[in-house]
Design a protein around this nucleic acid. Sequence first.
DNA 1: GTCTATACATGGATAGAC
DNA 2: GTCTATCCATGTATAGAC
Lengths: 185, 185
Amino acid sequence: MDGALRLFARRGYAATSVREIVAEAGVTKPVLYYYFGSKEGIYSEILITAWEDFKALMDGIERAERKGGNGLVRLCLSVYDWFEMNMDLVRLAYSIYYGPPQGAPPFDFGAFHRLFHGAILRLVRAGIRSKALKCREPEAMALAVLGAWNGIAQMALAAPETGKKAGKKDLEKILRIIMAGMKTG
Amino acid sequence: MDGALRLFARRGYAATSVREIVAEAGVTKPVLYYYFGSKEGIYSEILITAWEDFKALMDGIERAERKGGNGLVRLCLSVYDWFEMNMDLVRLAYSIYYGPPQGAPPFDFGAFHRLFHGAILRLVRAGIRSKALKCREPEAMALAVLGAWNGIAQMALAAPETGKKAGKKDLEKILRIIMAGMKTG
DNA sequence: GTCTATACATGGATAGAC
DNA sequence: GTCTATCCATGTATAGAC
């Protein structure tokens, strides 16, 4: 599954052949069909596994949040850490969520987006309630934060091409700029 | 070329067959090979044409800028108009620039990005010189603006799935929020 | 459970008539 | 320049031995 994900992320779903996948894993075709049933099968299995992992991460953050307060910036940075450890998955997800399905079976990539977006929105609202933030449009504010996160993540994804190495530090910097206009006082 | 672009954007490069392209255009395969040489040929031709078009747009904005002043927000909105008229192209471009090449021949999608980014950065610096903006980090500021643009564009691209219809108005709103922290006074 | 060998569809691309 | 018919590589998937 790791090898298949790497190939899907680097060549695309349709452009990756079963031959390449099994070669990468050092096995033969019947092995793949025995365990996953089809090319679509291994693809779906990869995504379901990743989704469970992401849900667990967000659950953990949510719990930590309840007993201590973590903050918008911290949330974004934690998710960014996960992103850096799962870049292949995110590359594949982005390319299909925002782009063409490439012949791959349907998958609800929006679920990742909604879970993250929801967490941001909750924190923004909490900030407004506690008067740490002054903005009257929490929805737009959440979008601005999410947009910043996406922007940096995408620069990192495009990095091999551009040479620019966007990272956590840039994310922090931009988040601060955005929030400068929203903070009270 | 229009039909091919539509298919590439909706199914992906590798997942689109020459058969489908010629069927969409109402011709036969030899016609495509006569005019474009190969599947890669028609793909490259589409992208080169789009790139010329985008360059012309940015040239026009640049000229208008020199004699009158246009502003960051206006620039973003103009490019957003172009985006809305070329969503198929942008969908394809995003999916390959940020994602896997899908077996398509190399193309410098970064050029679009650099041209837009450069224009934003110039306007930010001009704003700082004229003391309309107070930020000391023009690079990060430009990234925040570009990120906002990308965020809205991507929500629009994902819209068929999510049902949320992000558009020009949302872009304007978010740009205002971002700039609230950067404006002087 | 894992291999070799192969079935069968579809892919991109072309030959050759008109 | 545009067609019909076809070539050949590659694709996913499986049969059947071990």
